[in-house]
Computed example of a mutant assay.
Amino acid sequence: MLGQLWAKSWDPKGKHCYVTGGSSGLGLAVAKLLVLKGAHVSVVSRNAQRLESAMKELETVRTSPNQVLKSYSYDLITATGAREALDAVCEPHQRRNPDAIFMLAGSCHPRFFIEETEETMKTQMDQTYWVQAWTALEASKRMVRDKSKGKIVFHSAYIGYITLIGYAAYGPGRMAIRALADTLRQEFLLYDIDIHIAFPGTMYTPGYDIENATKPKITLKIEETDPGVTGDQYAKGLLRGVQSGDFHISPDLLGNIFRASMRGVAPSSNFFVDSFWNFIGWVGLPIWRMTVDSTVKGHRKEHEEYLSNKGFYSSSNKSFSQ
């Protein structure tokens, strides 16, 4: 912590920043901020049409005609896709690695666990864990081989700290990405590579509407206490945390309580402030848990009717899914 107090803030100006999931939502919001700060920005997404629209937005905020702004369409849930995307992204920059990698691709499709299938379980792990892990693996190998410093920014969620009904397939990937980031923060002290990980809560982005399409009513009810933020609002807090050198980044009230209470051996952003958040969590989180448990138990009758109406109890139904 003391080292951070006197550390020089990271400046993205003139640096090459690679943003996955950069065609919409948080990814696009972060990409725009980086462009405004003078960075060269490469965005990657699967949706070519949204990428075209995103590039038009990035062009409107460029601060210099010398900034290199590029977009690429790749699927990053495989090691091959991650490698090919990095090859393409590095090409306009004399094949040098990006100075910072913001891994913000992914999606969430909450359901009750008994509604999941083999396909949906695998898809959620792909879109929460592997979509970041493969890029991190390929990028870090290149950084270490070239002895280049850099930043790798992971993206988790509140669910990376706590669990809620409805997130049985989504939560493990978010917790796994936290475990990966926690491990690499220590391991990459060997290489002078900085690791960061963000833990947002509710964000009002296009992905939020998709998420709510499958989200159980009981989950929506529990989440009513989270006021939520826009992608633009969270992007500012995320980038501020990266520039300050924070490891776990949760720039909002609930996120800070979860972070301070459940960060384990992760470094503290500020010992005194985190001690305050930890005390709030020590008092408040057990009460919150009991309230949530009570709400879930009160949902039993409605849930029984839901399962019955969906045909879950039918002996002929062997592949019940949402």
Score class of each variant (00 low, 15 high):
residue 1 M to G: 13
residue 1 M to W: 08
residue 2 L to A: 15
residue 9 S to H: 09
residue 10 W to A: 12
residue 12 P to Q: 04
residue 17 C to M: 03
residue 21 G to C: 09
residue 21 G to H: 07
residue 26 L to K: 07
residue 30 V to A: 14
residue 36 L to Q: 14
residue 37 K to I: 00
residue 37 K to C: 01
residue 47 N to Y: 02
residue 50 R to V: 07
residue 56 K to N: 10
residue 56 K to V: 06
residue 57 E to H: 11
residue 58 L to Q: 07
residue 58 L to M: 15
residue 59 E to A: 13
residue 60 T to W: 05
residue 64 S to E: 11
residue 67 Q to W: 05
residue 73 S to R: 08
residue 76 L to N: 04
residue 78 T to G: 12
residue 82 A to G: 08
residue 83 R to E: 11
residue 86 L to M: 10
residue 88 A to N: 09
residue 90 C to V: 01
residue 91 E to M: 09
residue 93 H to E: 04
residue 94 Q to L: 11
residue 94 Q to Y: 13
residue 96 R to I: 00
residue 97 N to W: 01
residue 97 N to S: 11
residue 101 I to P: 00
residue 103 M to Y: 02
residue 104 L to A: 08
residue 105 A to Q: 10
residue 107 S to K: 11
residue 109 H to G: 02
residue 110 P to V: 03
residue 112 F to N: 09
residue 113 F to C: 13
residue 116 E to I: 09
residue 119 E to T: 14
residue 120 T to I: 06
residue 120 T to G: 07
residue 120 T to E: 12
residue 121 M to W: 07
residue 125 M to D: 03
residue 126 D to S: 09
residue 128 T to D: 01
residue 129 Y to V: 01
residue 136 A to Q: 00
residue 142 R to N: 09
residue 144 V to N: 02
residue 147 K to W: 01
residue 151 K to R: 15
residue 151 K to Y: 01
residue 152 I to G: 02
residue 159 I to C: 09
residue 171 G to Y: 00
residue 174 R to D: 06
residue 179 A to T: 07
residue 180 L to S: 03
residue 183 T to P: 00
residue 186 Q to D: 08
residue 186 Q to L: 14
residue 186 Q to M: 12
residue 191 Y to M: 06
residue 191 Y to V: 08
residue 191 Y to S: 15
residue 194 D to H: 13
residue 194 D to F: 09
residue 196 H to I: 04
residue 199 F to Q: 05
residue 199 F to R: 03
residue 200 P to Y: 08
residue 208 Y to K: 07
residue 208 Y to F: 14
residue 208 Y to Q: 11
residue 210 I to V: 13
residue 211 E to R: 04
residue 213 A to E: 10
residue 215 K to S: 05
residue 218 I to C: 07
residue 219 T to W: 02
residue 222 I to T: 04
residue 223 E to P: 04
residue 224 E to R: 13
residue 225 T to W: 00
residue 226 D to E: 09
residue 226 D to K: 10
residue 228 G to A: 05
residue 229 V to D: 04
residue 229 V to I: 00
residue 230 T to S: 15
residue 231 G to K: 05
residue 231 G to S: 07
residue 231 G to I: 02
residue 234 Y to P: 08
residue 235 A to V: 00
residue 240 R to Q: 13
residue 243 Q to N: 05
residue 246 D to R: 07
residue 263 R to I: 10
residue 264 G to V: 06
residue 264 G to D: 06
residue 265 V to T: 15
residue 267 P to M: 13
residue 268 S to W: 04
residue 273 V to W: 03
residue 274 D to G: 13
residue 280 I to N: 10
residue 281 G to T: 05
residue 282 W to A: 12
residue 282 W to M: 10
residue 283 V to A: 06
residue 285 L to P: 06
residue 287 I to N: 01
residue 289 R to L: 11
residue 293 D to N: 14
residue 300 R to T: 12
residue 303 H to C: 10
residue 305 E to Y: 00
residue 306 Y to G: 08
residue 308 S to P: 01
residue 311 G to T: 09
residue 314 S to H: 07
residue 318 K to C: 03
residue 322 Q to A: 10
residue 322 Q to F: 09
